[in-house]
């Protein structure tokens, strides 16, 4: 099955099985490996990408749902400069192993777009679906606050 959509601003067409998921299509067919596989069941958030600006778990998103729409991955976040959240992630030295971080950052970008000045409770509620086994949560919160409070 052929599916056309926009990936990080560029039109792509990809040939997959009809029941392929967005995650493995991105990673294997399109070699866009920033979105990670962690659970395959919407339990960890490592695969979080944006579909028309909304955060989705790519591991449970069928490729058919993506046709004609626009997907943004961690690779498409930075322009000339890093996205302010990416920079804040560096400033707070948030990542440890880093494997969860593309999902964390994509989730956080969506949060701040909806709610530029979230309270700590709102941050936690919004981010709670993205697991970090390395336990970097407090630095992730700080990185988000660094951006929200500078606005």
């Amino acid at each position: 099955m052929k599916t056309s959509f926009k990936l990080n601003g560029k039109p792509v067409q990809v040939e997959t099985a009809p029941d392929a998921t967005l995650l493995w299509t991105l990673r294997d067919a399109l070699q866009m490996t920033g979105a990670k596989y962690g659970c395959g069941a919407s339990l960890c958030g490592a695969c979080t990408v944006h579909l028309d600006g909304m955060p989705v778990r790519a591991c449970m998103t069928p490729i058919s749902m993506v046709a004609g729409r626009s997907v943004t991955t961690i690779e498409g976040l930075a322009g000339e400069e890093l996205h302010p959240l990416q920079q804040a992630w560096i400033d707070e030295q948030a990542p440890q192993c880093g494997y969860c971080q593309p999902g964390q950052i994509m989730q956080a970008v969506a949060l701040l777009r909806d709610n530029p000045r979230p309270s700590r409770e709102q941050i936690i509620a919004y981010m709670n679906g993205v697991l970090c086994r390395c336990g970097a949560y407090l630095r992730i919160i700080k990185a988000i606050e660094r951006v929200s409070q500078s606005r």
Binding site: K36, I74, P95
Partner: peptide, 14 residues
């Protein structure tokens, strides 16, 4: 290693 871990370019074996 952190910059590559915020822009998606860090390579894990997967």
């Amino acid at each position: 290693d952190i910059p590559a871990k915020v822009d998606g370019s860090a390579m894990y074996s997967i």
